[in-house]
Design a binder for these strands. Structure first.
Length: 291
DNA sequence: ACCGCACCCTGAGCGC
DNA sequence: TGCGCTCAGGGTGCGG
């Protein structure tokens, strides 16, 4: 679910909740591939650490801790990072939602999908990481420990340039859509914003990457930055699971031009938007506006 | 080096 | 009601 805009909105809103506070008792679910660092070690080593800041690299959140350690978080497809003060039906299972009158939602109760619960030494709110599909990741890095996951990321999508995309696309046989989704090329891109950027730039997602011109790469980089900046302004896209750390929905889902609009008319020319699988991901484009 | 695919996991929605 | 199928905003690791 979460792409760069959702991760950035999460970062901006969770930072004030965490920074300057000292971690207390940590609760986790059991061992699973969700935890790159074994949960028992997390519980042991996080307690007593003070949070110095929260940064973002592509779709990763990096929680800076005293002593030079840092906690790497990736939200995967259904990850939700939020304050225990947040209230949202998106944080509940369908059955829990149905059982609850809309006006009397009480405090969030950690469920089996809440894999990490950060409590602090003070009495302020907890920080919770919930992830139904467990495609998210948690890793604790020791001081100075390099992260191969971060190290292989390409240029941040908010800083991408046409030159870089053009250079990376030469001699590549994959579709331009797949190239843009490659995190070693553009870090932070995802299925929604890549489809949106391709539409704004007027480039068909299935076109071979090496056949995209330099001018089009420039348009793609600008379009990617434009849609992402706008999405951050509106609080990200809440399509199924995403909620901001305070429980509020984003607004960008209402500004989508092509993503998940298959069969609906193109907002520019009225031609039905087409949906097609490209590189194992569903892709949406206007056959008339995108060449 | 690159490419396509299977796989990791759970839940919602749909046709029958 | 229930079953089986498809789909979902992400990423890794494998063989060819």
């Amino acid at each position: 679910m979460p792409e760069l805009p959702e991760v950035e909105v999460t970062r901006r809103r969770i930072a004030p909740v965490m920074v300057g506070r000292t971690l207390g008792r940590i609760r986790t679910t059991g061992d699973s591939y969700f935890f790159l660092t074994p949960p028992a070690r997390l519980r042991r080593q996080l307690a007593g650490r003070r949070v110095g800041g929260v940064e973002r690299r592509g779709k990763y959140l990096v929680v800076l801790l005293d002593g030079g350690k840092c906690l790497l978080l990736h939200l995967g497809m259904t990850g939700q990072l939020f304050s225990s003060l947040a209230r949202s039906p998106r944080l509940l299972s369908a059955t829990a939602r149905a059982a609850l009158a809309p006006d009397r939602q009480t405090a969030f109760e950690p469920d089996e999908h809440t894999h990490l619960q950060l409590r602090f030494e003070d009495t302020g709110p907890d920080v919770l990481f919930r992830d139904v599909r467990k495609f998210g990741k948690v890793q604790l890095l020791a001081a100075g420990e390099p992260s191969e996951r971060l190290d292989k990321l390409g240029i941040d999508a908010l800083e991408s340039t046409g030159d870089e995309i053009f250079q990376a696309s030469r001699k590549r046989k994959v579709a331009i859509k797949s190239l843009l989704l490659d995190q070693t090329v553009v870090a932070g891109s995802g299925n929604i914003y890549t489809d949106e950027a391709l539409f704004l730039a007027g480039v068909r997602p299935g076109r071979g990457a090496s056949r995209v011109t330099h001018a089009e790469c420039v348009r793609l980089a600008e379009a990617m930055k434009q849609v992402m900046r706008r999405s951050i302004e509106t609080g990200g896209s809440s399509i199924s699971d995403y909620v901001a750390p305070d429980g509020s929905d984003g607004g960008y889902q209402d500004e989508r031009r092509v993503y998940a609009r298959g069969g609906e008319p193109c907002l520019s020319c009225g031609t039905p938007i087409r949906r097609k699988i490209i590189g194992q991901r569903s892709s949406h484009y206007c056959p008339r506006c995108q060449r």
